[in-house]
Amino acid sequence: MAVLVLEARDCTSPVFLVRTWALLCGCVTFSLVGSLEPEHLREPQRRHTTFWIACMFTWCFFFTLTLLIHVLNVIQFHSLLPVSWKNLTVTVAALGALMTLSASVLLPWRVLVHRPTSARPLAAAVAACLTVLAYCGEVWAIRGQPREQRGYMASLPGVLKIVQCWGGFQMIPLFLETMTATQARDLSAGGGGHVWQLWVSVGLYNVCLLMSLASVTVILCDCAGRFCPFPFDRLLAGFSLLGVLFYMVATVICVTNVLQDVENRSGLLIMETVIISITLMAYTVDFSFSIKQLCERGHG
């Protein structure tokens, strides 16, 4: 099969321009953050903290993924891939917007010292925000295309599944940091603490994340009818229902910890509460869409 090069008029399309913008801003962001001196960090003795690693991984991963998509789109090689290209591009853009947004919030809050006179951390924060805007612009440009050029992941139910994946991914570094803080607190207090609550919560998060990743993977590979032994729309509704139930249990555990006012974890509890609330809302709305779709098909 011949490989075609992108035409000149495609280089001025909104998707091409914002994707190039995302590449430039992402490269500048992780370059500036990686070059920060130890005194710029909140904990100079722990340069590679969990959140610092999570932020750097986010920018580097989505830069690499966006560059690969950009190159494949330019040489028109994506038609040879066994994936739904229109679903893949919007999935990477939307998830990149959410993940880089989290990283841009964590950068000044949990990683850097608040030094308004320091130019390099301020420039890194500005570049991180521009990266978020670039990915948001790519999502907006893709959703602005004609309906036949957009995939399922560009619809509201598809975006909700991306939000669900984002919530599960955010819990990984949060759990590691919370476990470290809890173990240090329990060691100094000489008690057993509430470590079991953390393990129950992380188990629920992981199950929900695996269900959301499985749903997105099936959609991206267009294999719902080939490998799924059950009606895929009913399977999605079941996953959404389980996500609602599991995150409700996790919400109860989180609220209990907030009421107990655990010391040295107030910031982590705020982050966990915000992420749980957003993800629970995404599962709830997604479940509502799934039920509505099943009812419409039943009446039809």
Rank of each mutant, 00 (worst) to 15 (best):
V195S: 08
G34E: 07
L268E: 04
G193I: 10
A134P: 07
A282Y: 09
I253L: 15
C129K: 12
V249R: 05
G26C: 06
V207P: 00
V163S: 08
Q76C: 11
W59G: 00
A184H: 13
I75H: 05
L36G: 03
F57K: 06
Y205W: 15
L235I: 10
T178S: 14
F62G: 01
S31K: 02
I275F: 13
C228G: 05
S155P: 02
R120C: 04
E272Y: 05
R234C: 05
E138L: 04
W85Y: 07
G300S: 11
V83N: 01
F30T: 04
V105D: 00
G167K: 04
T50D: 04
T131G: 09
L236T: 07
L106Q: 07
A250D: 15
A8S: 13
T131V: 03
F227K: 10
P38E: 10
S240M: 09
V3G: 01
I53G: 00
S13V: 03
L213A: 12
R143I: 02
F61G: 02
V274H: 02
Q293P: 01
L81M: 12
N87A: 05
L220V: 08
W85S: 03
L198D: 09
L245F: 14
L65A: 13
L294K: 08
S35P: 01
G144Q: 05
L242G: 08
C129Q: 12
S201I: 02
L242W: 09
R47A: 08
F62N: 03
F175T: 15
L210S: 08
